[in-house]
Nucleic acid binder design. Structure first.
Lengths: 141, 141
DNA sequence: GTCGCTATGCAGTTTACAAAAGCTGAAGAA
DNA sequence: TTCTTCAGCTTTTGTAAACTGCATAGCGAC
């Protein structure tokens, strides 16, 4: 029941881009160094983000990645689901066929509730908000 | 970001006991067979539950396990935390030392919120409630 | 054009941990 | 005593995450 590194790195990456001036292009090498993330691993993650059009790729000299959308329009849920696909706390919340008596399984029911709450939280917050939090905290200290 | 088998099996085990007449003793072999759980694995899980005094062990012939408390008094959170220790969606929500700039990390903040919500849900439901859900569903069908 | 830089995509390898099994012992009842 | 059941430890297995490497392709600069 933990976040994976891929999810963590992906979020850190897009947050990094969100703080840049809109439309600017940043190479992976810069992000990887700034956030201490293995570059090749980050590349793989950004491929998913690129396919989900959360991020736009630019090849060649002075290439890299830029945000494809306004950070205000991108929810955390979108980022996380692009990386790992839809969430499921337990396998059978997804596919009732796995356990025969799923319809009687109260555990399954409870986890569905928890799952929905969790997804809701991720859906309720955008990248722009997170950047705001960060700034707010820094200005206090 | 998924439930482990240990957590799932542990919950199924205590739910099984919750449905029995209060105070009755059930051997692991019975639970393991009824729920299709590897017996030795279940034994390990029940050791944790026993140490947390959620369950009471009885050795010898006709021994086994019984619930140590009224199912109404045991929350799902207690069961889960006995098995795996306190929850943390991300390592640094637990220990700020891990990432230096934790105090500026908005991701950490969001995950703390999510974590609290999740724990709250598990805290709000008891074993007795889950058993009720199960019965309610069965009577409908 | 061609050269260097950057992402793309696939095929690995390594690592970590969950899941499971095995074995020896201890407690307890008959 | 003897059988049954849990206790506790070690070891094995399986699998997915985490990470690496390389060959390729697109793009810009020159």
């Amino acid at each position: 029941m933990q976040f994976t590194k891929a999810e963590e790195y992906g979020m850190l990456g897009v947050l990094y881009l969100s703080e840049k001036t809109p439309g600017s292009i940043t190479p992976l090498s810069e992000i990887a160094e700034a956030k201490a993330i293995p570059e090749k691993f980050l590349a793989k993650i950004f491929q998913s983000l690129s396919r989900a059009t959360i991020v736009r790729s630019h090849r060649g000299v002075r290439g890299g990645f830029s945000l494809a959308k306004d950070p205000k329009e991108v929810t955390v849920k979108e980022v996380l689901e692009s990386i790992h696909g839809p969430y499921h706390l337990i396998k059978c919340t997804n596919n009732a066929d796995i356990c025969e008596k799923a319809e009687y399984c109260s555990l399954r029911e409870l986890l569905s509730i928890a799952e929905r709450k969790l997804i809701q939280i991720f859906e309720d917050h955008t990248l722009a908000e997170l950047v705001e939090w960060e700034k707010a905290k820094q200005s206090v200290s």
